[in-house]
Design a protein around this nucleic acid. Sequence first.
RNA 1: GCGAAAGUGGCGGAACUGGUAGACGCCCUGGACUUAGGAUCCAGUGCCGCAAGGCGUGGGGGUUCGACUCCCCCCUUUCGCACCA
Length: 858
Amino acid sequence: MEKYNPQAIEKKWQALWEREQTFRVTEDPRRDKFYLLVMFPYPSGRIHMGHVRNYAIGDLIARHQRLLGRNVLHPMGWDAFGMPAENAAIKQKTHPGRWTYANIEVMRRELKSMGLAYDWQREFATCDPVYAHREQELFLQLLDQGLVYRKLSLVNWDPVDQTVLANEQVIDGRGWRSGALIKRKELSQWFLRITAYAEELLADLAKLDGWPETVRTMQANWIGKSHGVEFAFQLDGHPATLPVYTTRPDTIMGVTFCSIAAEHPLAREVAAANPAAAAFVRECQAGGTSEEALERLEKKGFDTGLRALHPFTGAALPIYIANFVLMSYGTGAVMAVPAHDQRDFEFAKKHDIPIRVVIQPSGSPLDPDALTAAYTGPGVLVDSGPFDGLDNATAKERVAAAFQERGIGRATVNYRLRDWGISRQRYWGNPIPMIHCPRCGVVPVPREQLPVPLPEDVDLTVTGNPLEAHPAWKHCTCPTCGSAARRETDTMDTFVESSWYFLRYCGPDVPDAPLDRDRVNHWMPVDQYVGGIEHAVLHLLYARFFHKALRDLSWVRCDEPFTRLLTQGMVRKDTMRCPEHGWRYPNEVREDGGALRCADCGAVIAVGRNEKMSKSKHNVVDPNDLIAGYGADTARLFMLFAAPPERDLEWNESGVDGAWRFLNRLWRLVHEVLERAPGARPARAMPADRELRALRSRTHATIDKVGRDLERHQFNTGIAAVMELVNEGSQALAERPDPLEVEAAAILRELAETALLLLNPYVPHITEELWAALGGDGLLCNQTWPVADPEALVREQITIVVQVNGKLRARLQVAADLPEAELQAAALADAAVQAHLAGLTVRKVVVVPGRLVNVVAK
RNA sequence: GCGAAAGUGGCGGAACUGGUAGACGCCCUGGACUUAGGAUCCAGUGCCGCAAGGCGUGGGGGUUCGACUCCCCCCUUUCGCACCA
């Protein structure tokens, strides 16, 4: 028997699949289609373990579906615009495009070494001129639909580098390169009106029953639909009004102050006249724009001196500028009810603002002077004039009605979801095809003048946006009036590219159009989408929105792009940090007397949190080493066996050996069957011999088990089941005479062929090789998934557990069809059970058919 | 801070609908074998105990004949938070 040599085998089959275009796919009306999509990678340089996991899972499902007879679309491409390319280009003095395409070359080769069943004919990168062109076209169509607009919004501004920073580039409120304190600055930016679809995005979550509940919940919370009341305070001695939105109109009589965002028009007005207020507003503008940063701030406020008049009592309420109020949510102003909102409570305590309890819970009444926290639960209204005595749910409606009657407010629905800001002040992205003309305003680039290409000759080292600093590119003529104009220099958020790539895969070669409607409608929706849980909200919500917008432009018919979603957990590893050199790779650390030390400076290494593998944290393991050492099959098997896909996977070297050894066991089993039963035909019926009957039952129970486990995405237990089958087959071979009797040969031949078929989607190379060794007909990956023989699944004897008061006391081997009464009698007659019942009276006997008998006694 | 999850032997995990806790694999221990191999095979392997037996699924409480599974409170870890992708 030859030794298992994965490197040689894998190369051979990969070459054959490529030569024969085995996984190339076209529309086929005779077969059910199955669209299996994996999230395409950002070409960062090399594949990492997260990719290996993602693509091993996707390939498993794709190959399984192929064996089930489906016509499977399984494409791959590159999410190729983005910041890292610019950073790398500056560092390595190259061009982002060159860096990106070089990375794609490397990563394509790496992916191919995994033996993935992709239709590579459909491959594209989102930075390809064709893709960028068609995306600009779609952008203009969205513009026509009224889904694109410009407004002011906040960015992280680095005052030293004079540039906009991404949230991840702001560390503890400072710029990552300059170290300067970051300011929030307003810029005019392009937005997509995702809020126009808020209701549909929320409602359609109910249809997505193939999605994890947790993702649907996260999206629903993100959209954040709430019912409330919108009204405007009149101000005391000031012509302006202060519109607010509240979800708690029932607490209206408990309002004792208002707070407004630092960017609120009233705040600006006050700041213009009052230096102290201006200083506070400036203070509020320090730091990054991320919601997390804002929410973690120490709550601060500044009394504007302005007074809002309570809509029902006319009481004068102070208006504070507060650093925790978001201009982007609601109206940028809130009515504050300290007794019934925790944040308002803390603020009121700090600023000595009165606290008015207006909702009393049943039971002990609240004493406003003794209150240590806001009461946010249900109750009955007090001190609320005409609303006294109402329960607060009813009060919500009554107060809303009161606002409506007086014509000063109305019940409204509000969403937490904000419109999607797609402007980026960066080079390596898709240009927004708009032109600023001093006479005509902002006008779209005419369709026939598309695409707006990125200039090749660009200086990335300038401060600010490189396109802004490229006069030849920036200056143009207005398509409407012909006067001198300038191009929009913002490029698009890369989430735009990932919002329609799955549609483009359906017909990537379509001429002169973004999409091939017929082929899109043939393949869509995606039947199974596989990707990381980190995309649960943003990417998946943007893609759903974009898809719906394209549906309304008649590019696609279905309402939702992804029917089933599998979110894989992170691949994680400990992080190691040197006080001198920062994050360290495993090979930059040595062990010294129990402590880990930096290989360069010898300082003691701090072993940090176990977290998502990422280049920036240096806690990556290179899958190429794994594949080069053990082969792709071992790498794939290990990733799929180590944990169920949804769970985070803590990287651990040991365990790879287990996968390797199992493949060797499989190798030996098949070769031994071949040698000891040459020319045997697989069994097709139950044999007479009892042991062989049990063995064949095991084969078919495994078919049943693996099939069900694949359905529920429990890949690790499916592998365990085949391991058990292979172990039993090896056992049988060890115990049987050589050469095998005819009946045994048939049973073992069936077992071996079954194991190969069941494992093929997991480990495609070794199974293909062994199938060929067995003299199998054609490619294994083109065979048909096995079906369990019902006769072989019938259990004759079963084990029944007997408990006394819930504790296990005996096991009974009984016929599967033993009547309940006889089962109960047998359980009570058991010696061990009798011993535990001594001196007790049997009160009750619980019989669970096929499982257990529980005797309850006292 | 807000939203969403996860926690089971020395380790990764299994237990599908409330019904045998620890399948399968790793590690480890003892033994066999020797073409000394990335070996392989056999036996053992949750904890305490000689045993009978007791204890045991992050911690505390509850529901139930019966809880890893359901409910309440707490702890720890992870993911996301709108310019990383």
